[in-house]
Design a protein around this nucleic acid. Structure first.
Lengths: 143, 143
DNA sequence: TCTAAACTTGACCATTTTGGTCAGGTATGT
DNA sequence: ACATACCTGACCAAAATGGTCAAGTTTAGA
């Protein structure tokens, strides 16, 4: 069970964006340099974030990306969903032919995986981008 | 973010084992048939479970496996740990050369992943095999 | 003692996912 | 017009996943 780097990068990039997104749009090149994420890979990620209305793009010279909502309204669950990072425990929900369905001993552990998914998702639903920025600011004051 | 089938199978197999482990040891062949998990794959999994003292093997004819502890003392975290199913969110803890270390913008989101890991692990630490068996019994009564 | 059942070990492998790169665009401010 | 920056899609190497296969060893019971 692990988080893929796509989801991790998406969150890192958005925190970066949120911090520098005051007046001017932020270019992916800047985020790439600051966060050490390849530009090409960032473009893939931001393409998905854009499709999911989390960021807006401004093309042309001095263009870049801006958040399309208040950081408080961007939950981690939105970000992960946008980049296809899903909490997936069992197959049987999606593919009725595989997994627990149609089997004599079906779903012995089905309830468990449901519970687990809910547990994780509730964490992602509570946490917003704003929370992460605040966290960072506190760190700067303290450190 | 997903659970691998190795962890899922381990839990399924152990629930099965716990339910049939009354007097006689349970053979992997029986578990394989009941749960639809390949015998060869089960052997790999049970080899790990044995090394981690979750099950004991009884060799020879009429042999098989038994739980080596009370189902109440076997937590999901033990099972997942045994089959190398770990909750892994960030790289930087293990490999100091990669990830957030040594970078100017280091660890923007580090606290977040820590929190997430704790959140998930706490779920696994609370849940025992006994809980799952009880759950199944209730289902049988109700259904 | 022989043999079948069952555990044990380790090599091997096909497929899928991951984590990108590369090559070409298109749009737009100056 | 040109530099900057977004946009799109093909491509790819490496690792993880989810197993199979082969060749044992151990032990109960006929």
């Amino acid at each position: 069970m692990k988080l893929t780097s796509k989801g991790r990068y998406a969150v890192m990039a958005l925190v970066d964006l949120a911090r520098f997104d005051n007046i001017n749009p932020v270019s992916l090149r800047d985020i790439s340099l600051r966060q050490g994420i390849s530009l090409d890979y960032l473009e893939q990620i931001f393409s998905k974030l854009k499709k999911n209305h989390i960021v807006k793009s401004i093309r042309g010279n001095q263009g870049g990306y801006v958040l399309s909502k208040n950081p408080n309204d961007i939950k981690l669950t939105n970000i992960f969903h946008a980049v296809d990072e899903k909490v997936k425990t069992v197959q049987c929900k999606k593919d009725s032919k595989k997994g627990c369905n149609g089997r004599a001993t079906k779903c012995i552990t089905h309830n468990l995986w449901d519970e687990l998914e809910n547990h994780i998702n509730s964490f992602f639903e509570k946490k917003s981008l704003e929370d992460l920025i605040q966290n960072k600011k506190e760190n700067r004051i303290n450190g």
